[in-house]
Design a protein around this nucleic acid. Structure first.
Length: 366
DNA sequence: CACCCGTGGTG
DNA sequence: TCACCAAGGGT
């Protein structure tokens, strides 16, 4: 290995030139033979590449495919998406999670229409200013759609590099990530940067997998430090994540006259800006009925009946909701609709973008 | 830098 | 069963 320092004075071991050439050739050959047939690979339309990259953030390929197919059918061009309403876009995203991705994408696409005449920027400084376009997505769009020599370091690439070069540092740290980006920048070939970036990710997805990597089928096994040392199973190193915090919550199924009350969640925090069943946090199961009765009294609602309807759990990445479901039937709709409160019929609820945790609750009620 | 932000699949 | 994870970004 050649020890080098980059502009930020990080010490980085770069492989010798011959090794770099082996990696480039073997990876590109392998990718040409083994790449999957994926719907975002039918052409190089920057808009199509962009949508796929945003959907794929922290989300599996198999999960994304049906969403992507529907999304591209509904919004075939960048202009179509720009002209859509926010509600339409978020509805198309329903069930995918991380809903801010949809709002950011929508907002960014509108910005591209207004400021760049509908052409997706092809410079890193410009495109990375768009909402929801970070370092990885910048590299992915520029290399895949525009064939620019910009690294795209995602979780796959970090895993592949950590094994290939036996890097034992925590891949969650910003410093390690900088090293990885510098490595990627040093490895990426002039000829086919987009294919090379995708080859790294494809290798991580198909061969250099998180558990039981298939080193026997790896095109770069001959130059892999982890494989030679037999430590591929130990890498990449990652600090253990904290378990999600358990929070007891109360969902209200508040109905009147065959309509149900929906509440818009605040513009910050979990499921921000999404329509939801009225939700109260830190209400334990044994207090669910009491709490709902208090709420009814405080609001002077005229109530036919209040019932516990059941319990369910939902685990987010950092929250674990233990949910009590309580139904309230009002004699009359004593609540004025507002910007964050509305009555809606059961038919119309299908048209609203509801997070899956609320869809799950709905299934227990209808 | 540490934390927040969804969901469903898997071994 | 449950810990871990999947083509990250924002703050």
């Amino acid at each position: 290995m050649i020890r080098k320092k980059n502009h930020k004075n990080l010490t980085i071991n770069l492989p010798p030139k011959e090794t770099i050439q082996v990696i480039q050739k073997e990876l590109l050959d392998w990718y040409n033979q083994n790449q999957r047939d994926l719907p975002w690979r039918i052409n190089k339309d920057p808009y199509r590449i962009w949508v796929s990259e945003v959907m794929l953030q922290q989300t599996r390929v198999d999960t994304v495919i049906p969403y992507y197919e529907r999304f591209m059918k509904q919004f075939p061009t960048l202009e179509d998406l720009a002209n859509a309403t926010d509600e339409q876009v978020v509805k198309a995203w329903e069930g995918l999670g991380y809903y801010s991705r949809a709002r950011n994408l929508h907002s960014a696409v509108k910005e591209v229409v207004e400021k760049y005449a509908g052409k997706v920027p092809d410079q890193p400084e410009t495109i990375s200013q768009l909402k929801g376009v970070g370092s990885y997505t910048t590299g992915a769009i520029l290399s895949i759609a525009y064939n620019k020599k910009v690294p795209a370091v995602d979780g796959n690439v970090m895993r592949v590099f950590s094994r290939l070069f036996a890097i034992k540092e925590d891949i969650a740290s910003a410093t390690t990530r900088k090293k990885m980006e510098y490595l990627a920048d040093s490895l990426i070939p002039d000829q086919a940067p987009g294919d090379f970036n995708q080859a790294l990710m494809e290798l991580g997805a198909l061969v250099c997998t998180p558990v039981s990597p298939q080193c026997l089928f790896c095109p770069v096994q001959s130059v892999c430090h982890a494989s030679h040392q037999g430590i591929q199973g130990e890498l990449p190193y990652k600090k253990k994540a904290k378990p999600p915090l358990k929070v007891p919550v109360l969902f209200g199924w508040i109905t009147s006259d065959s309509k149900v009350l929906l509440e818009k969640r605040p513009n910050k925090g979990l499921l921000r800006g999404m329509w939801a069943l009225p939700t109260w946090e830190d209400v334990i199961e044994s207090k669910a009925l009491d709490t709902m009765q208090k709420i009814v009294i405080e609001n002077n609602w005229l109530v036919k009946n209040i019932n516990i309807k059941g319990n369910l759990e939902h685990i987010f990445s950092h929250r674990h909701w233990k949910i009590s479901l309580v139904t309230v039937e009002l004699i009359e709709q004593g609540l004025e609709p507002s910007s964050n409160l509305k009555w809606i019929s059961l038919d119309d609820i299908e048209k609203i973008a509801l997070p899956n945790v609320y869809r799950k609750a709905l299934k227990m009620l209808v």
